[in-house]
């Protein structure tokens, strides 16, 4: 019994790592622009497909494919921000959100036209052998999962250091705090926002490739996974990096255990139910700060 729970925990941590990588992009963009980037789930999907193309068409190994796919997806994120969002920064929030929805649909359909609606499989590039030490206890854990979890955690740690220990990270936090004052301090706000989109998109690409290591990918996967990651970001407190990671692991845990012990049909219902209950009890998420209303 305890071993099956540990087994499920492994699955939850792996899924949680993917959620966390996507959720970080949502939370960073929200922190800076106060905007829900509804296209982010589809950027995640694009990242997975860019990785897929690099691995199958060019035949790059994972250690080369992953950083290249991350760079290309970062570029995609920056281009989207430049073309679609920048001009709407001062506009009503609703037009920004609708534009993001439009960008998302565009990406989905564009990828669908390019590669077709069928599901694809990323080539297995990590060693899929079973970890013997765990197998003694009837827990099936493969080395690729361990690697995925480790690389994800490293990426999150790098992000944390970047945001909290570098000059650009400080500028990002400053923009998140007050967008109007920051330009007066000589910080190029466009640059900061572009970097935010780049970092968020790159992380999403990593998430997409890791996801593709154990599940099949298709052009519409961004909708479902994107929403899940988004819920994770909101549960953790949108705008907070630690919160996004925490929310991601919490949500993946709830989902995996729902599927394992209740019913897979209830998965979405329960995760959205969790979201609603949490929002009603703690409207700003677990780690989010309440916004003061100035009269």
């Amino acid at each position: 019994m305890i071993y099956t729970i540990i087994q499920q925990m492994f699955n939850a941590i792996q899924l949680g790592a993917v959620y966390a990588l996507i959720a970080l992009g949502y939370t960073m963009v929200y922190g800076i622009l106060r905007m829900i980037n509804f296209a982010h789930g589809d950027i995640f999907m694009c990242g997975a497909f860019i990785g897929f193309l690099l691995a199958t068409k060019i035949g790059l190994p994972l250690w080369l494919m992953l950083p290249m796919a991350m760079c290309l997806t970062a570029l995609l994120g920056v281009i989207i921000e430049r073309i679609a969002y920048r001009r709407l920064r001062t506009a009503q929030k609703m037009s920004l959100v609708i534009t993001a929805l439009g960008v998302g649909i565009f990406l989905e359909n564009f990828v669908m036209l390019m590669v077709g609606p069928a599901t694809k499989q990323l080539p297995q590039q990590l060693p899929g052998s079973i970890v013997q030490w765990f197998f003694k206890y009837n827990i099936t854990v493969t080395w690729d999962r361990i690697w995925i979890i480790i690389i994800s955690l490293v990426l999150m740690a790098v992000l944390w250091l970047f945001v909290n220990r570098t000059l650009m990270g400080t500028a990002m936090r400053a923009v998140a705090d007050n967008k109007d004052i920051v330009p007066l301090m000589g910080i190029n706000i466009n640059q900061v926002i572009a970097v935010t989109f780049a970092v968020g998109s790159a992380l999403a690409a990593a998430g997409g490739i890791f996801y593709g290591q154990s599940y099949s990918i298709d052009p519409y996967m961004g909708i479902d996974l994107g929403w899940k990651a988004f819920i994770a970001a909101v549960i953790g407190g949108i705008g907070s990096i630690e919160g996004a990671v925490l929310g991601a692991f919490l949500l993946s845990g709830v989902e995996i255990f729902t599927v394992a012990y209740l019913s897979s049909n209830l998965k979405n219902g329960i995760s959205f139910g969790l979201l609603i209950i949490l929002l009603l009890i703690r409207p700003n998420g677990i780690m989010g700060k309440p916004i003061l209303k100035k009269v």
Binding site: W227, I231, V234, N265, L266, N268, G269
Partner: peptide
């Protein structure tokens, strides 16, 4: 409507998903 703004968007979307899931 205990929430406003972005949170209202999320919560209504969540209810949409729950209705479909139900």
């Amino acid at each position: 409507f205990k929430t406003v703004g972005d949170y209202l968007a999320i919560i209504t979307l969540g209810f949409n998903m729950i209705i479909v899931n139900a």
